[in-house]
Every structure is written in structure tokens, then in C-alpha cells.
Nucleic acid binder design. Structure first.
Lengths: 250, 250
DNA sequence: GATTTAAAGTGTCATAATAACAATATGTTT
DNA sequence: AAACATATTGTTATTATGACACTTTAAATC
């Protein structure tokens, strides 16, 4: 009877063949981070530990964007954060490919195939209270490669590729920055994400043309040197003045 | 018994909750076209006619790219043509939204929800023998809006948006052009897709910088005026010399 | 309160890219 | 040979870019 209930639950509440995985990017201390969670897979007399991106099945009456929001809420405690689907992963053999590496995969080779919609998400880590992050998750440096479960390494690569692509055409940096930020913080963020450096003067000349980047009458506090001016992003001005042709590359 | 077989077929051969829809773009006679097919929906004593993009369910052992290839082969007779997934459509209410418009939708409101992966595809129409296009399909002008089934209007809008986006960053025009083409043909194609015009001299100065655009020792034939030089696209040179930063905008 | 420290903030020049603009060349048709 | 239709080509003014180094400012230290 318990098995019955569980089956009914899966059939009615979720769509077992479709899941959403979220690559959640954060930026802190000049590092691009990504949220991974530990998965424990009990198999025979052992327990296997694996890292993966947070994910979940799509519920029956839920748009996939809602699935992504739900995952983000559950994992970080945050709502209304930026998330965007970037690719569908549908390799029917994703389990098989790791057959040789992981014993526990073997008995699951005949499981139903799952198609995954990858989302990437951007959060400003200064907003994130670490107590709201679920226990088995951690912010890992995005560039320190770790072994991930299933096809999650591929999902990460595609997410980063898409993030970079989109950053050149939309003002997405502001999702990763605090409400008020300095131009140096913004420049560093670009430099970390694109793994490059820019000339400070040229960078400032460029961003000064962005009408939606608002200099505030406030300066940085708590630094032991000349404090920098703070800026904020004005979404309204951006929406009004955006043109298809503008781009954010240096 | 027939019903049984059909059910088994759906369950075993395909994943009923996941489908692929293809927006197939073609270019001919200075027009951007898109392949639509007529669907007949018998309901009670009537038959409803609807237009939609070719689509199909994903088979159980098939990567979604393979599903897209299969659809393209079936509808156009062509193989190895460019196709790229661009977005997942998952609105659980897509049938409900048309409840008021179409009687035949009503009894299907409780059908299982289908999540659709949208692909766009590019074909060079001079290669397409019209006899290989299936009977119920036609090439429609992409800009003459027509009423499409389900959420296919939204799918088209997103496909065109993504096509334009990608065209600025990858040499996709060549997928829509014949093997050998003139610079004017290439310019016109851009102009049609981006709904704009360019100055011929400036356009040529720009494309002359593309090392992978090869001037041939051949000229146009069959025109009643000065024939233009033919060019071809060299994929190898492109792959070797591509940089992330180059872009195709004017 | 003078000095040190650390990052903020700022300008020039040479080169490259862009936008606006029109006349000549070359095949085909009549 | 003239008319036609499109191909092909160059200049100039403006704007964008890339390379490059010194001065300013607040806090911390002596």
C-alpha cells in the first residue's frame, strides 16, 4: 500500500520524465561561486557521496519557471531571484556513461529516462543569509573543478557559456552585485567572469555611457583608503533606453 | 486490441510528455519563409483545420537532437541540416487558453500535459526539391502572421528572436544561402531577417574582413545585367580564426 | 599632525571602426 | 549603338577603442 501511494504521488504530482536543474551563480570576495549540494546514494552496504546542482521534477500543474523558482526557494531561501532556462539535456545514456566509475549506477540503468531543463540563476551573495542555505549545500568556487554527478559537469559548462553570452547583451551583472556598488566591484566581477582584465580608465569611459548606471551621493564605508562612490542600476531607465544594438563588451 | 497496441506503442516507443517542435526557416526570392503544416482535427461532426509547426514526440532512446533530425527528414526530406534548440515551452495551460476559440479543444483539457522543446532550423531553399516536402506542409512568409495552433505563435516569436540573436554571433547566414552566392544576396538576407537596410559600400567593407568568406573565380549566370562575383563560406577557416569577440552586426 | 598606505579618480593621443554619401563599370537586351 | 540593370569602388567626418601614468583622498600609523 505504501508503494501504491508513492506511485500515485509521482504520477499525479510530478512529471517523472522532466526535471529542472539550477546552476546558481553567486559572487563574493572576488570569486564567482556556484551552489552545489551533496547527494548520498545508499547502495548495497555502502553510501556513495556525490555533488550535483539542485534540481527537482516538474510538478504537473507547474510551469518550468515555477519549478525553478521553487528549487531556488528551497535551496537558498530566496525568492524573486533571476533565473533563465538555457538548455535542455536529453542524453538517454547519461547514466550509462558513468557505468564504469560508479557501482551504484548499474542497477539504475533501466530507470526511466529523465530529460532535464537547465536553468542558470544569479544571486547577490551579500543578500544571502547562510542559515537559509540548506544543510547539504555549499558555495563552491566556480572555477575549481569538482566531480559532479550525472551530466552535471556538462550542465555547468553550458551554463557558464550561456551566462557569458548573455552578460554581453543584458545588464545581468546587476543581479550579482549588491544594490549599491562601486565601479571597481563591477569591473572585478566582469574580469572574474570573463577571466580577463580591463584598463580602469577605458572601463570607466565605457560604463559612463550607460544612462541607467546611477552615481549616488554616497560613498563606500569601512575601507581604509579613499572610499569609492557608490552606484546603482536603474531598471526603468534601462528598459526605456535599451536598444538591441548596445552591447556590454569591453 | 487496436487500442492496446496503440497505447503500448506510445508508452514504449515515445515519451508522451515530451515533444519537439521545429521552426524551419528558409530563404527564397528575398523572402524569409517558414514551414507550416496543416493539421486536421476531427471533432464531433466537424473537421477543424489548423496550422502548426512540424513536431513529434521524443522516442525513448533518442536524444532530442535526433528527434529534431527525424522531424526535419520526414517533413523536408533533407538530412544534415542546421538545427538548434532554443527554448522549452511548458505552460500547463496552453490548451485552456484557447478554450473559448476552439470547440475541439474542450474535451482535450484533461489530456496529459506536454512539454515542448523548440528547435529552429535553417535550410537553403534552392536545395529543397518541393516534391520532398510532405503534402500538408507549405512554406509561408515568416512575416505574414497566421493563426497557429496551441502556443505555436509564441514558439515562432521566440524562434525568430533567437535566430536574430544567434545570427549576430555565428555565421548562420550561410546555412540559408546556396553553396555559392553573391554579396548582394547575402546582404538582402540580413536585411530581410533584421528588417532593415544597409549601405552597400559599408556592408561590403565589413564582410571583406571575414577571412572565411571566399571570393570565387566564378560569376553569376542567367541574369540580364552585369553578373556578380560568387562567394562561398569556408567553414574550416572560420573555425580556425573565430574569436569570441567578433560579431556580425552592421 | 605628519607620514604612510591603498585604492579612487582622471586625460591624451594614435589608431581603428563607423556612417553618410555618388559616380563609374560591365554585362545583357533591344 | 543605346538603354537597362545591377555590380563595384573611395573619401571624409565622426566616433570608438586601446595603450598609457599621475594626482587625489580618506584611513591608519607613527
Amino acid at each position: 500500500m505504501e508503494e501504491d501511494t508513492s506511485n500515485i504521488n509521482i504520477t499525479i504530482e510530478t512529471i517523472p520524465t522532466i526535471s529542472v536543474d539550477c546552476v546558481i551563480f553567486g559572487y563574493d570576495a572576488n570569486e564567482l561561486k556556484v551552489l552545489v549540494r551533496r547527494e548520498t546514494v545508499p547502495f548495497e552496504d555502502k553510501v556513495f557521496l556525490e555533488w550535483k546542482f539542485p534540481g527537482n521534477h516538474v510538478r504537473r500543474d507547474e510551469d518550468i519557471d515555477a519549478t525553478a523558482s521553487r528549487i531556488l526557494k528551497e535551496q537558498t531561501g530566496l525568492e524573486n531571484i533571476f533565473a533563465k532556462q538555457f538548455m535542455v539535456f536529453s542524453d538517454p545514456n547519461r547514466l550509462k556513461r558513468r557505468k564504469q566509475d560508479y557501482e551504484w549506477v548499474k542497477p539504475r540503468l533501466n530507470d526511466d529516462r529523465v530529460i532535464t531543463v537547465g536553468f542558470y540563476s544569479l544571486v547577490n551573495l551579500s543578500d544571502v543569509d547562510n542559515s537559509t542555505i540548506i544543510e547539504d549545500a555549499k558555495w563552491a568556487n566556480a572555477y575549481e573543478s569538482m566531480i559532479l554527478m550525472f551530466d552535471h559537469s556538462e550542465i555547468f559548462d553550458e551554463a557558464l557559456k550561456k551566462l557569458r553570452y548573455d552578460l554581453l547583451h543584458e545588464p545581468l551583472v546587476f543581479e550579482l552585485l549588491p544594490e549599491k556598488f562601486t565601479l571597481t566591484q563591477m569591473q572585478k566581477l566582469y574580469e572574474v567572469i570573463f577571466n580577463t582584465t580591463y584598463d580602469k580608465r577605458n572601463y570607466r569611459r565605457k560604463v559612463n555611457k550607460m544612462a541607467y548606471l546611477i552615481p549616488l551621493d554616497e560613498i563606500q564605508t569601512g575601507v581604509s583608503h579613499k572610499p569609492a562612490r557608490l552606484y546603482s542600476f536603474d531598471r526603468e531607465i534601462y528598459e526605456k533606453t535599451r536598444t538591441e544594438r548596445f552591447d556590454f563588451r569591453m
